[in-house]
């Protein structure tokens, strides 16, 4: 199958008054039709910058300095505003973290949805209304006829996120980018929105690029997972491979930090901080925080080593000459067990 979205060796720099920040340092991944790929990482790892670059909405200080982005085989990185407008919403929809900020407080939900519908081709009033009602129904909003007359402040957080998803779906996109779509929501509402996304995918076959820092949430939705650290993908594989056989020490650290992780004693925090990408460290960017770091980690960046045909990780521990290290993390029967 041909990938829907292909990101190839993408590099993005931000120019600031202090110097150049390398936010994305050679990232490659693909999203296939109908699947969910989750990008996992902490704040500052470059995941939001990546999404924005796909839609061409990078901050003016950010610039793609290498690589390319292909959508259905066509290069979309570097396109002009006019061509990008045709892609945004129609080919690729986007859902942001904070639904309240994504909506206009002075317009009714129905008006905002109608606006999104009309952008993708003028429709007669009645047809547009029917489409709005259908979208509201699709995202599970009850009594859509009544609800379309409501203003955002009359909606709860979960309902707002449903409305935002409806807007993102207005142009029948093939790919939905969801950037931390449930982070601002309560846990019971989060579960509903995750279910909604999965249901939508089943109904419409839409592909989802899901951005999250939460391994719990990711396990619920992802078919494949890519772990980002300091602007690079450090591990990637099917969800089953990443959870049942994680290979990168950073992925282990993410699991260990989970409050639900069962350790022998206290919670095991990851030491240190994300490196300052104004001055990227020599060697592996994670070496400083990595208790499994080898001498070579401080000298040379590890390449991607294959574990299986679909699973690979950028750690020298996978080099044939490296000492054998067993993963301290085991995900089994819904529990994360840490053995250290």
């Amino acid at each position: 199958m041909e990938p829907l979205l292909e990101v190839k060796n993408l590099k993005i720099d931000f120019t600031t008054e202090y110097g150049v920040i390398q936010a994305v340092r050679g990232v490659s991944f693909s999203v296939y039709p109908g699947e969910t790929l989750a990008l996992v990482g902490e704040s500052g790892c470059g995941k939001s910058v990546l999404c924005k670059s796909i839609l061409g909405i990078l901050h003016s200080r950010g610039k793609i300095t290498g690589g390319e982005i292909l959508f259905e085989g066509k290069r979309i990185s570097g396109l002009g505003e006019k061509e990008l407008t045709a892609i945004r919403g129609r080919e690729i929809g986007m859902v942001f973290q904070n639904p309240a900020a994504a909506l206009n407080p002075t317009l009714t939900i129905g008006k905002q949805l109608a606006e999104a519908v009309q952008v993708h081709g003028k429709l007669p009033k009645q047809e547009c209304r029917a489409r709005v009602l259908k979208l509201l129904e699709l995202v599970g909003i009850d009594r859509p006829e009544e609800r379309m007359k409501s203003y955002p402040h009359e909606f709860s957080g979960g309902m707002l996120q449903r409305a935002v998803i409806a807007i993102a779906l207005a142009g029948n996109p093939k790919l939905l980018i969801a950037d931390e779509p449930t982070t601002a929501l309560d846990v019971t509402i989060q579960a509903q929105i995750l279910k909604l996304l999965k249901d939508l995918q089943q109904k419409t076959g839409i592909a989802i690029l899901f951005i999250s820092h939460d391994l719990g949430v990711v396990a619920q939705v992802a078919d494949r997972v890519a772990v980002l650290y300091a602007g690079k993908i450090v591990e990637s594989g099917s969800a089953t491979e990443i959870y049942s056989d994680p290979r990168h020490p950073y992925t282990w650290g993410l699991f260990r930090s989970l409050p639900c992780a069962k350790t022998n004693g206290a919670l095991i925090p990851m030491p240190g901080q994300v490196p300052d990408m104004l001055h990227p460290p020599k060697g592996d960017a994670f070496a400083e925080r990595n208790s499994y770091a080898l001498a070579i980690d401080f000298e040379e960046e590890p390449p991607l080593f294959h574990v299986t045909g679909t699973h690979y990780a950028a750690t020298w521990l996978l080099h044939p000459e490296a000492p054998a290290v067993k993963s301290p993390v085991l995900v089994h029967s819904g529990e994360v067990l840490v053995n250290e």
Partner: peptide
Amino acid sequence: QALIQAIPVPDPAFRQH
């Protein structure tokens, strides 16, 4: 009970839906 059930389980083998 509802709150506890809604906690996402970090294991793809345990999808709640």
